[in-house]
Design a protein around this nucleic acid. Structure first.
Lengths: 365, 365
DNA sequence: TACTGGCACTCTCGCCCTCTGAGTGCTAAT
DNA sequence: ATTAGCACTCAGAGGGCGAGAGTGCCAGTA
């Protein structure tokens, strides 16, 4: 059966009422809203039909109706009106992002915190794994027992390691090693760094003290680290505020699931849309079957992708959450993803100096 | 009134029973343990006195007794027998630590996760703030628009930044800048990097394009980052397992408190003992008044101090938690704090190669 | 004098019962 | 097609009751 316009209106009203109250919605409540000029009896009939059509559910006979996942899906796809953020809200987000972006390594977790405090739901922040090779290598001589290894990766990140040695090396050796590494280790993936390569390099520069091994280990370590994704969860405690998680066992189950980042690292792969909503049973993980997830993807240039997501009950304010997340994601892409434009420069301004970015735009994209 | 030996024994029994069961303990339960050969009536009398002395409390007239904070304090100070970890447990810890220590920047949060999973309580991992200066500076030329700034700090950490420029610079300029920075910026604290210093340096190397500012900003940023402490919370969901946090509001309050790292950064300062137990009202924060905190301090060399702590109900298995935490802390100090011995070297072994460390010792220190 | 058995007393907790009220489905009237 | 009206259902709140755990106290015993 096709769903009539009037049914859609009623369904929308039920969903929005339920999102606000978390309690089953009765026909009388809807009638009294006054949006549609219908008696409660008429609405009752419509709601009965919506129930047989699978859009509404009754917890028990004499209770009101609760939207089904199918209803939320319809709501998200066509019923809800996409919310625009207020100027105030976009300003807050822009300001937070500008501040956060100063410290690149904390960015991931800070963005999660921002999303969480903005939406009042737990947020997950995930950086997609990305393959990388070393594109430049350097060794900085500090003293006879110490040098710093620096590796710049193909994804434009730089890693370093301070190495103390239990013996002395002369500066010339360090310089020679750097040169050899730059010819042998640049542009290859970590599984190409085999023991046989290491020993041939050892012979090439006359290293008998295991220096090459140490540096090669650093290279492997760095590449591995780059390959791994990262995942952070922020604001998990927001869950406990919600009526659907008053039961500590339920809350515990979900929080436990979220705290294992293994589960979250898979998220960035499937799905192509900029923003994606997974409602209840649409989630594959059984721990999420009663919850919904809103995910925004961003592209931070240099083949680094990430997602920022929010977890909540199926009764979630999809409209507001989606608007906020996509604004954050767009802001991230804008601030970080300008591969063409000069990068890094604008991140290094002294506090108080103006950021070199576009002027703030308050349109949510 | 002085507390007799027999009272101590009874108190210990009550505390341990309560720690295990989370329910008020009656005289009969203690009598049936058989540890002391006394009738329930005698124990009843003793418990009544312990109550007037302030060691026990009654939730209501006809319930058993619950230990007071004062009782836990006595228990921790002299009653409990300090637990030794099993060989198995120490092996697990040692192994985890060896693995974690590979990736220095994740160490903090990983150690928290370890403590949390070991104790089954939420854990906090805090790195104390530490002042630092730059002890060596280097700029690595990548291409005409790109260089890498590397700063080694007095605390032996190394930071770097990839800098893209919206214009070209020649390699000679980069080299000259590095030299100038090494003479002007080494050994000074961040508040010495004033605009006037920057402009004098700018004049010294003929920089008209703001390069010096960019690099100085990196220096300030790096020093600031080093000065800030870091705090992580792991395994907060463990709280929900505990009977005292079945009430979602209580759990929410504590989790909320913990999630704001501001509160935790203060922890490392006060207190001098290696291991410290704060019971209920001994905590200054009102959110912790009903909970206990066990803190272990470690010293990771290079003037880096940190604490690893566990938060739980006052009814906490102090003995086991303290043993585990202090073993972890000692392990950290051992693995990282060997300032005299070669450092860094042992962290860079290829996976599968043996770690260069002391053999595992199963003594808890 | 120190301990113990016994007993009356108290109070929580779980259980059952009842009652109320919200919400429904259906029918007859408009 | 819509609505008013009505009988029906059922969760949840409130009250009463009994069981059981634990206590304090007293009198008796070693």
């Amino acid at each position: 059966m096709e769903i009539s316009d009037r049914k859609k209106k009623i369904l929308t009203a039920v969903i929005e009422e339920y999102i606000a109250s978390a309690e089953p919605v009765g026909s009388k409540t809807i009638a009294e809203l006054g949006d549609l000029d219908l008696s409660s009896a008429t609405i009752r009939n419509e709601m009965a039909e919506l129930t047989t059509m699978g859009y509404l559910e009754q917890p028990h006979t004499s209770a009101g109706r609760v939207p089904s996942p199918k209803a939320y899906r319809l709501y998200v796809n066509e019923l809800m009106n996409r919310q625009r953020l207020s100027l105030e809200e976009t300003d807050t987000i822009n300001e937070s992002l500008s501040n956060k972006i100063q410290q690149f390594d904390k960015l991931m977790s800070d963005v999660g915190k921002l999303a969480s405090s903005l939406t009042q739901y737990p947020a997950v922040s995930v950086a997609a794994p990305r393959a990388a090779t070393i594109s430049r290598f350097d060794l900085i001589y500090v003293d006879a027992n110490t040098f710093i290894a620096v590796a710049m990766l193909s994804n434009s990140t730089v890693q370093n390691k301070l190495v103390h040695l239990p013996f002395s090396v002369e500066q010339g050796m360090i310089v020679r090693l750097a040169a050899v590494f730059n010819t042998n280790f640049v542009g290859i993936s970590d599984d190409k760094i085999t023991p046989s390569l290491i020993s041939s390099v050892e012979r090439a520069c006359g290293d008998t003290m295991g220096l090459v091994s140490v540096i090669a280990a650093f290279a492997i370590d760095t590449l591995n680290k780059a390959k791994e994704g990262e995942a952070y969860v922020s604001g998990a405690s927001h869950l406990l505020r919600l009526p659907e998680f008053r039961d500590p066992d339920k809350a515990h189950e979900l929080m436990n699931y979220l705290s294992d980042s293994e589960h979250l690292l898979g998220l960035p792969d499937d799905g192509v849309d900029d923003i994606q909503v997974l409602i209840g049973p649409e989630n594959v993980a059984k721990e999420l079957q009663d919850s919904s997830v809103v995910i925004a993807r961003y592209n931070a240039g240099d083949n680094m992708r990430g997602i920022i997501g929010v977890v909540g009950p199926t009764r979630m304010d999809y409209s507001a959450v989606a608007a906020k997340l996509s604004y954050i994601a767009a802001g991230l892409s804008r601030l970080m993803g300008m591969s063409e434009a000069p990068r890094g420069f604008e991140k290094l301004q002294i506090k108080g100096m103006e950021m070199i970015t576009d002027e703030h735009k308050e349109d949510s994209p």
